[in-house]
């Protein structure tokens, strides 16, 4: 500690500086919003004009899964990346077993809430094509149901076969890619749908996305690679060596 005679001052030690910066940022945002003419009309008109061709009647879903499906594709991959990072960090964290559940109240809550959550997720998924809702919201509810199960030390992620879990997590990104590439092979731009199929493709994508997002979020909360018994693999090698 020879070279650091001066005390280090992090932003947290000077909260007022942070507040001033925040207020300046807020003022800049307010200025952009309040000065007339600085905000263009937005793309609402274009969206409304081509809504009929999108296959769904909800503007948000039309943007997310048709006009800007590319963004949603990347979001699915980012979630997948998050799970991969968490799994690769497994050794960094402590893998102590979860504390035993708080017991009866949580169990009763689970019994009441889980069916309701699955129902709500399904409704949100379906409602997404015409009103508020959609894959991410439904996926979040499913993820919440998974978290609730994990809180009760339910080992549902450990029981799930590894292959099923990995396929479940990668289902949405892979399906998205497949849809995009299928469009390419038919001579259309990446991730575009034919008008007749648009509705069906969007609903299928949403179902896959909600499922994968829910599984991804629950896996993220578990925070580690599920523990698999390594016996089968060893047995296989042992059998090979025996031959």
């Amino acid at each position: 500690m020879v070279n650091s005679g001066r005390k280090r001052v992090s932003p947290a030690h000077r909260p007022w500086l942070l507040l001033v910066l925040l207020l300046l940022f807020f003022a800049a945002l307010a200025w952009v919003y309040l000065v007339p003419g600085s905000v263009p009309g937005g793309l609402a008109r274009q969206v409304d004009a081509s809504l009929v061709a999108s296959g769904v009647s909800s503007r948000v879903t039309a943007v997310l899964l048709n006009f800007r499906a590319y963004d949603t594709l990347l979001e699915c991959f980012i979630l997948l990346l998050g799970v991969m990072v968490v799994w690769s960090l497994r050794s960094a964290g402590t893998t102590e077993p979860r504390q035993p559940a708080v017991g009866a109240i949580l169990a009763a809550l689970e019994r009441l809430l889980l069916p309701l959550m699955i129902l709500v997720a399904g409704y949100l998924l379906w409602a997404g094509s015409s009103q508020a809702g959609g894959a991410f919201q439904a996926g979040a509810i499913l993820g919440g149901a998974g978290v609730l199960l994990l809180l009760d030390s339910s080992p549902f992620l450990d029981i799930l076969p590894k292959k099923a879990l990995v396929w479940g997590i990668t289902l949405a990104p892979l399906f998205f890619l497949a849809v995009g590439v299928a469009a390419l092979t038919q001579g259309r731009p990446f991730l575009t749908y034919r008008f007749q199929e648009a509705s069906l493709v969007i609903v299928a994508l949403e179902v896959a996305a909600a499922f994968s997002i829910g599984l991804c979020l629950a896996t993220l909360f578990a925070g580690r690679l599920p523990e698999y018994e390594s016996e089968p693999a060893q047995d296989k090698f042992a059998a090979k060596r025996g031959e």
Binding site: V60, L124, Q131, A132, G133, G134, F136, Q137, A140, I141, G143, G144, V147, L217, L220, F221, G223
Partner: peptide, 22 residues
């Protein structure tokens, strides 16, 4: 409303649970 749903479910609920477990 779409953002509100996402914020309540992901921004508040799941992120909060992740923070608590961290």
């Amino acid at each position: 409303p779409d953002l509100a749903l996402a914020e309540a479910a992901i921004g508040s609920g799941l992120t909060g649970a992740l923070f608590l477990s961290a």
